[in-house]
Write a protein that binds this DNA or RNA. Structure first.
Lengths: 181, 181
DNA sequence: CTCTGTCAATACGGTGGCGTATGGTGAAGC
DNA sequence: GCTTCACCATACGCCACCGTATTGACAGAG
């Protein structure tokens, strides 16, 4: 409620999101984060009910900053082809490390729900663009699923086997050519 | 060395691979597995030095049974187009759950190494087939990377957001058409 | 029938995280 | 200057897992 209350709660949330990126959801843990913040658990259990609440807040934060935000930003691009190239290009540029960390932690129901929402939002967004390019709705949806699958797959390869990935720029061009045409 | 020795060690390895599929690498734990097997840790530490050794054995078992095995099986198909369709079709049929569980646990160096080897082997295999279809080596490699990315991405979607995936058969046809042509 | 080696049970100590209960501090409000 | 309240520290009990040490069962070799 009060905006003041959230000032130091946000320190925890920021640190949690960083820890998630570095060490996965297991690193979003009370005592390690407290050490990192130079503080004790006493602080944490003031701002949060328990660890699940921190996880939920962290996931929600990711969803705002790394799903909805970028999607709205790209939505300003008028040309659907440009829009698609922008999206697929980002896949090659910066591997979405937090996203993959969340995929690793999908056993947690909150995480699974967020990941599923993100998938639907992104696929719908891609399908919209493909539709504007003239594909039928069904075909646009399938093409969007194909494109999103490559996005996720590349994100995995970039993290887990970058050596097989080779020249990312060349692959990016190849994918864009194959999928957008 | 002795084949007898491995009889009950193999019970552990089997159970470990099952647990991996169900609960991820965290479930490949000594005490839970002992409970499940109706036995105590005393047994485990007879057959294994420690938990890392069990994890290594489990990963190696997966690599044999779920990477090298299937690849060799499909290698018997002479026609490269048939071979590709067989591979990409399997992606839609049965989601490779153990594989994704391993992706989730790539922080463990043994797991990362195995996952990277699997990726390279599979991509090379796909590239070979695309080469036989007439693509230049560079283009075949890129196409293989594209195909493998869709494989991994679909595996994720199938597990984490099956509701956005929709009709898998239609998507399979779409992907095969787009990638193999 | 004893001895030896294989395998498992028991019992222990250690670690690391969760959550709670309670006490302390400093600043704002009166 | 006293109180109140937001905020954090201290200290505790709890649980789950790892790994070790020791003992016990039991089968086959001699």
């Amino acid at each position: 409620m009060t905006p003041e209350q959230n000032l130091d709660r946000e320190r925890w949330e920021r640190a949690a999101l960083d820890a998630l990126e570095r060490g996965g959801l297991a690193a979003v843990a009370v005592e390690p984060l407290a050490r990192e913040l130079g503080v004790t658990k006493g602080s944490f259990y003031w701002h949060f009910k328990n660890r699940p609440e921190l996880i939920a807040a962290t996931v929600a934060r990711w969803e705002r900053l790394h799903v909805d935000g970028p999607l709205q930003a790209v939505a300003t691009i008028a040309d659907p082809r440009e829009r698609l190239l922008e999206l697929l290009g980002k896949a090659g540029a910066k591997p979405p490390s937090i996203f993959i960390r969340l995929l690793d932690a999908v056993d947690e129901p909150v995480v699974r729900a967020a990941v599923a929402r993100a998938a639907e939002a992104r696929v719908a967004f891609l399908a919209q663009a493909f539709g504007e390019l003239g594909l039928t709705p069904a075909k646009a949806r399938r093409q969007a699923l194909l494109a999103y699958s490559t996005y996720v797959g590349r994100a995995h390869l970039a993290r887990d086997a970058p050596e097989v990935l080779g020249d990312q720029a060349a692959l990016s061009r190849h994918i864009a050519e194959q999928l957008v045409g």
